[in-house]
Design a binder for these strands. Structure first.
Lengths: 193, 193
DNA sequence: CGAGGCCGTCAAGAATAATCAACGAAGCCT
DNA sequence: AGGCTTCGTTGATTATTCTTGACGGCCTCG
C-alpha cells in the first residue's frame, strides 16, 4: 500500500531528516545516540533514511538520549541552515536621524523581545566545553578583537563587525583564543533578569 | 519485553490520553475521526488506551483528520480541564485605590500580553457554525445580556459577571440567543493588529 | 419489545518496525 | 601497507502495530 503521501514540502526533512539534523547538531553519532537511548544503531539509521516511521515510544526513547522532548523536536525550527552568521557587510542598516544609524542583526523582527549586553572576553576566556543551552534566542556583534563561536555543528572565528544569531536551544560556546581582549555587543531573549 | 517505562508522571495522559482529549475537544467520535483520517477505528481505540504506541506516520495521518500538526499536538497544553469558565464570584479581585477595583479573569498572569475589546452582540448574532480557531488565547466578561459560549466540547450560557478564558486553538463560537443586546469585555493575545 | 444505528472495545491475522549480526568505506596509528 | 577502530548501511529474524470482522452496551424509533 502506498503508505506515504505526506506533504513532501518538508523536502529532505520529514521525521528522519529532522532527527538526523538534531543528532548532528548535538555532535552525536548514530551508535553513540543509540547507546544512550537504549536502541540499536540500525533503528536510527532506518529512521533517518525515512525507510520506517518510528513509533512514538521509540522516538521518545531516542530523544531521551539527546535529551530533547517530543514537543521540542517537532517545534524546533530547522529552516534550511537558518543563517547563523552575518558578516559585517550583511548587516541591514537602519538610519535614525542624520548622525545615528542602527545596524540590525538578523532578518525582520519576528516576535522577539531581545535584551542586549556589552561583553568583554579576556584572552583565553572560554564559556566551557560543556556547551551552553537554554530557552530563547541570542544574537551578538563583535566590536573588538576576535571570538571563536561554536553553534551546534557550525563554528566560526568572528572579527569586528561580524555577528551571530541563533536559537539558544542549540548548544553553543564562546572562546577568545587571541592575545587581545574581545568585545561583543550581545542580546538574548526573553529578557532573563 | 517491557516496552513501556515512560514517565507515568503524565498521569492519564501519555500520547493516548492526549489524543482522546483532543478528539473529544473537537467533538469527534473514534469512528468519525478514523473515517476522516483514513485509518480504522480500532487503531484509534488501541492508541487512546495506550495499548500501542503509534508510529509517527499513523499519528500524523490521524491528526490530519482533525486537522492538527504534530507540533501543535505535542505542544498543546492540556492541563487537567484547565478551567474554561469563571463564574462571577470566582473572579479574583484586585483592589486599586479606594474607589477602584480590578477583577482579574484567569489565574496569575503567566507570560501573556493581552489586548481587550468591548463587544456588542445584537439579538440573534452568531459567529457561525464554522467554529473559530486561531493562535493565542482569549478571555472575556459578559457585562450585559446573555451569551452562549461554546469552547471545544464545553458549552455554557453566560450572564452578567460571568467570564471565560481559553486557548484560541480550541474551536469556539459565540451566540446571542436572547432578545436583548449583549455586551462583553473581551481580550485576546497576542495583540493581533 | 425488537430492529436499527452508533458507540467503544477486543481477538486473530496481515503489515510494519526493531534487533541482531555482518559488510564496505574511511580514518589513524605503528 | 597492514591492523585496528569507528562510521553508516543492509538482510533476515523477532517484536510491535494496524486491519479486519465481530461483540456487548446504549440510545431511538416504530
Amino acid at each position: 500500500m502506498a503508505a506515504l503521501e505526506q506533504s513532501e514540502a518538508e523536502a529532505a526533512e520529514g521525521v528522519g531528516g529532522r532527527l538526523r539534523q538534531v543528532r548532528q547538531i548535538f555532535g552525536l553519532t548514530q551508535r553513540e545516540l543509540a547507546r544512550r537511548a537504549g536502541v540499536t544503531n540500525g533503528a536510527i539509521s532506518l529512521i533517518e533514511q525515512n525507510r520506517v516511521s518510528p513509533s512514538i515510544s521509540s522516538l521518545k526513547k531516542i530523544l531521551d538520549g539527546i535529551p530533547m522532548s517530543l514537543a521540542e523536536f517537532f517545534t524546533l525550527d530547522l529552516s534550511p541552515s537558518e543563517s547563523v552568521f552575518f558578516l559585517a557587510g550583511e548587516l541591514t542598516e537602519i538610519a535614525f536621524g542624520e548622525r545615528i544609524s542602527f545596524r540590525m542583526v538578523g532578518r525582520r523582527v519576528k516576535t522577539c523581545s531581545l535584551q542586549m549586553l556589552h561583553e568583554t572576553y579576556q584572552p583565553g576566556a572560554d564559556t566551557g566545553e560543556a556547551m551552553l543551552r537554554h530557552e530563547g534566542e541570542e544574537a551578538g556583534v563583535v566590536t573588538r578583537g576576535r571570538l571563536l563561536v561554536t553553534v551546534g555543528d557550525q563554528e566560526r572565528l568572528l572579527g569586528p563587525g561580524d555577528a551571530y544569531y541563533f536559537r539558544s536551544q542549540i548548544p553553543h560556546r564562546f572562546r577568545n583564543c587571541s592575545e587581545e581582549p574581545c568585545e561583543v555587543v550581545s542580546a538574548n531573549s526573553p529578557p532573563s533578569f
